[in-house]
Write a protein that binds this DNA or RNA. Structure first.
Lengths: 211, 211, 211, 211
DNA sequence: GATGAATGAGTCTTCATTCAT
DNA sequence: GATGAATGAAGACTCATTCAT
């Protein structure tokens, strides 16, 4: 909603690219640990091993760092959703992949997922100041999948695809939140796999006994 | 030079009680509109129609206001969960009431629910600085319901009650978030009722077609 | 929400060192003029010709500035006391040097001595929050001198070295206080020299006529 | 130096007089414990067992309370000095009484003496804003005694009465300060009596051995 | 590119004091 | 006389951001 800003400079040199990357990595860690408001630019710079003034050679301001993390990571994310949608798969399989994807991203990059959950998906301020539409593509992608599946008879006719999307997203996100805040502790790959199965099962068949 | 901490006396007079309530109401509105960080104590005071210094007669600091909203409202919330659990009802009925409750609270007090969602349930800082256990009782209450229902054959044996709790909470919360951020707009009571049915249906039976 | 405390990095550059020094000088003047409580950080910054925010790059807070003045100046002070003690001198000569030292420090740096007297030696708050032991080394140094002198027969046997130390300190300090508050006005070096003689004489021989 | 203010009201009733006295007692205790700046009017009122608003029925402001303590207590003090001066006594005896008086006041009312030392005698602010002359009468009284004694041959000719006054006051005050801050701990009446003897001896005969 | 010294807007918080009741 | 609710001036402190070097 605010005017989109261009990068201050488009750094081309190897060093530049590397430094920019270091800042994003550092910011991801610091934001995850302290939250966006609790993170100071100086903290990020320290974590990146650079002078804090240098941060402003790569980003306009603190918000811009978060926006970059969001744009560059959420980009892949949405891309994957589209990929899942393009691939000819059963709805069950699509959902399995989505659920696996979320859990997997969390397992690989818990800090990143923490930020996505704490600072972006839910952040009033972030949603206010950025194009909420960018976030919603992910929702749209899932909604479309459900719509397609419903048309193909793989999803119950009565289901409202939009609402179902929120339910799916919410379910996945809360489980990840459990991981993030430590109330759901999983140590082994098997434990995570079991959670994926559970989620998938719940989303597809609900709580009640089958037949 | 050291900070002198002492609890504000709990004011007893009628006027006092009313002022305190006014502050909480004002804070609820301002927090919902601007977020905790974006809200200034002066904004709250202005909204309440009092001098900002007076806020400090009733609360130690800004945090304390949020904590009070949390404690006093979340209390009722948990209480309702326990009530639902105590009443002899089918699991389906219990779930229906829960879902209805959430939607209803949102409809009646959208600001309050907004805060619950944006500032409390998800707030890194809040969870860090307050007893997370208080939040978790709500989770525990639902988990127990599922456990009971599973024992009674009302819930599929394979279900992990803890994980299912996160799924239920997440689903409900994300739908409310949709209301809060306006991406799910519902204007009529019927629209809300339909959402309740949808959520209930999804949680109980999942996305796949019934038989 | 919790305060994040970390020591300011000790700045290394020339400029930095100079700025820090400027702040201490400015603070010395402002504290002397207005007292610690009456001095605002903004006043100090203005006196130093810098933005007030910069003060916080060098010191944690207002207290810390006073503590730095204390630590860095009182250090020299105590050092001198030890030097006097190490040098082989008659007790009379030692006392002469001490008295001269106090008067001299006042003459050279009246602001500094004013702070020492008004804010540090007597400040309830300061003594409360800092290691009173650091202050007391000065007392100990003098006490030891008296003890040595008594053993050597240069001081009356009946004298309690600790109490005598308080008497000496008190006498000197009150005279300096007279200078500070202006009730004892001395304009010429000779006037100060006469005071030194008087003090020395009083401390060594008392008020009563010599034989 | 500031305009002298009249008491808000001259309370006449028994109750009034008693309440006023209670406030002064409470303030003395609180000022001694927390210092003038650290003491809140509310603390004083609480200590006195009254509502804090009532304090302003008896005193104009916080300063006024300290001023009242000063005026009413220091009054007796000065009065005693004059009495000592009027009574036909040897100089030695006069000094003995003074020293005894100071120690005795501390023993009876340590809080009061603490305030006198910490907040009044040395307080830059207090001296700035009140008639310093009131404080100085005490000095003058002693100076006169010395002058008289010198004329009578009881004090060495060379002595400068004014400077000697500062030495005497300073000596006594520093010993009391030792009591106040606890670095000089005296438990028995005998210990205090010994200190009086020491001080007297030091002031009259100095540190050096008597013949 | 890199540094970190310097700036100052923005807020929270304290607490003496007033005054309606 | 007594209460304590209400006011708001005053100031400490943080930290994102700029910019001279």
């Amino acid at each position: 909603m605010s005017a989109q800003q261009r990068p201050r400079l488009s750094p081309r040199s190897k060093r530049s690219v590397r430094t920019r990357e270091r800042i994003l990595e550092a910011a991801t860690e610091v934001f995850a640990r302290a939250g966006f408001h609790g993170a100071r630019v100086a903290d990020i710079a320290e974590q990146a091993g650079i002078a804090y003034g240098l941060v402003y050679h790569y980003f306009h301001n603190k918000d811009d760092i978060l926006a970059a993390i969001f744009a560059e990571r959420w980009g892949q994310y949405v891309e994957y959703l589209h990929e899942v949608r393009r691939t000819p798969l059963s709805f069950t399989e699509r959902m399995r992949r989505l659920v696996h994807f979320w859990v997997e991203v969390y397992r690989r990059e818990p800090d990143l997922m923490t930020i996505m959950i704490n600072e972006i998906t839910r952040s009033y301020e972030f949603l206010e100041s950025h194009d909420i539409g960018t976030v919603l593509v992910a929702f749209d992608a899932i909604e479309e999948m459900i719509r397609d599946a419903r048309a193909a008879g793989e999803v119950e006719d009565d289901i409202d695809p939009q609402l179902a999307t929120y339910v799916i997203f919410g379910a996945a996100e809360m489980v990840l939140t459990g991981y993030v805040i430590g109330t759901l502790q999983r140590r082994s790959p098997e434990a995570f796999a079991r959670d994926e199965e559970q989620m998938l099962d719940l989303l597809l068949h609900g709580l009640t006994p089958r037949a």
